[in-house]
């Protein structure tokens, strides 16, 4: 096994957006059983180091493929498209305005210490993301339309950022 193969090849999975989560989990666990530093606690430093590098590599690959947004961005990267939500401004104006309004709503709820509203908002955004992921799966795996898929991934990146902002707000209110 080459340490530098792509994440899909590492787990012996097809290079697709739709993945079998059970198979991914299974492969991940099988690989960590072999590579994890706990298996090398009595070994020399050289083997401990190799084990840590492998276990780190396997964790990175698993986290990338398990998270649908990271998986989609990774597929784009393998296809030669590097996506960056920060530097991309080519989004439709109405989408950007909606995003700004939502973020203001989060900031407002945060100032008002409205935990319940934030929790509800959190689940609403999550729900919307779920629908978009279904669309994305069809664009990537069935239609091979990378241009539309890219647009969808960027929208999802905005929503993902919004989710982490809501999360930060909830954490700040709890502190």
């Amino acid at each position: 096994m080459d340490f530098n193969v792509d994440h899909f090849a590492l787990f012996g999975l097809p290079k697709k957006f739709r993945t079998d989560p059970d198979l991914l989990d299974k492969r991940y666990r099988e690989m960590q059983v072999l590579a994890h530093p706990d298996r090398y606690a009595g070994a020399g430093d050289a083997e401990k180091r190799v084990s840590m590098q492998w276990a780190t590599r396997v964790n990175e690959a698993y986290q990338t493929l398990k998270n649908p947004l990271r998986r989609a961005a990774y597929l784009m990267l393998l296809a030669g498209k590097k996506l960056d939500v920060e530097s991309n401004t080519a989004m439709p104006t109405e989408f950007l305005i909606e995003q700004m309004e939502w973020r203001e709503a989060v900031a407002e709820a945060r100032r008002a210490c409205a935990n319940t509203e934030l929790e509800q908002f959190y689940h609403r955004v999550k729900q919307q993301m779920k629908c978009r992921y279904e669309r994305l799966a069809s664009l990537l795996d069935d239609k091979a339309d990378t241009a539309l898929a890219e647009d969808e991934v960027l929208r999802l990146m905005f929503l993902d950022k919004l989710v982490s902002e809501i999360d930060d707000a909830l954490v700040a209110l709890e502190a």
Partner: peptide, 16 residues
Amino acid sequence: SAFAALRMDRTIRDAF
């Protein structure tokens, strides 16, 4: 250290 890396590669390749 190089031997350790080769062994790990083999372990994982064999298992899969």
